[in-house]
Measured scan of single mutants.
Amino acid sequence: KLPPGWEKRMFRSNGTVYYFNHITNASQFERPSG
């Protein structure tokens, strides 16, 4: 389970998975720990 605010997303163009935090508007490719 991801830390609060984080969700898994995917770029439609190339299928790359990334993680987005809707609380802080942060995004990263590494899976957030917590």
Results as ranks from 00 to 15, higher is better:
Lys1Arg: 11
Lys1Thr: 13
Lys1Met: 10
Lys1Ile: 12
Lys1Asp: 14
Lys1His: 12
Lys1Leu: 13
Lys1Trp: 12
Leu2Thr: 02
Leu2Ile: 05
Leu2Lys: 15
Pro3Phe: 01
Pro3His: 00
Pro4Lys: 06
Pro4His: 08
Gly5Phe: 06
Gly5Cys: 07
Gly5Glu: 06
Gly5Val: 00
Gly5Lys: 00
Trp6Leu: 01
Trp6Ala: 01
Trp6Phe: 01
Trp6Asp: 01
Glu7Met: 05
Glu7Ser: 09
Glu7Ile: 09
Glu7Arg: 06
Glu7His: 08
Arg9Thr: 03
Arg9Ser: 04
Arg9Asn: 06
Arg9Pro: 02
Arg9Lys: 10
Arg9Gln: 04
Arg9Trp: 00
Met10Glu: 11
Met10His: 11
Met10Ser: 11
Met10Phe: 13
Phe11His: 15
Phe11Arg: 13
Phe11Leu: 15
Arg12Trp: 09
Arg12Ile: 13
Arg12Gln: 14
Ser13Gly: 11
Ser13Val: 10
Ser13Arg: 09
Ser13Glu: 14
Asn14Phe: 01
Asn14Leu: 08
Gly15Pro: 00
Gly15Ile: 02
Gly15Phe: 11
Thr16His: 12
Thr16Trp: 13
Val17Thr: 08
Val17Gly: 05
Tyr18Thr: 00
Tyr18Val: 04
Tyr18Gln: 05
Tyr18His: 05
Tyr19Ile: 00
Tyr19Val: 00
Tyr19His: 05
Phe20His: 11
Phe20Met: 01
Asn21Gly: 03
Asn21Asp: 07
His22Met: 12
His22Trp: 14
His22Asn: 13
Ile23Asp: 09
Ile23Tyr: 12
Thr24Asn: 06
Ala26Lys: 14
Ser27Ile: 15
Ser27Pro: 00
Ser27Ala: 12
Gln28Ser: 07
Gln28Tyr: 03
Gln28Pro: 00
Gln28Arg: 02
Gln28Thr: 08
Phe29Ser: 08
Phe29Arg: 12
Phe29Val: 10
Phe29Glu: 08
Phe29Leu: 12
Glu30Val: 06
Glu30Asp: 11
Glu30Ala: 03
Arg31Glu: 10
Arg31Lys: 10
Pro32Ile: 01
Pro32Gly: 03
Pro32Lys: 01
Pro32His: 01
Ser33Val: 13
Ser33Thr: 13
Ser33Ile: 12
Gly34Pro: 12
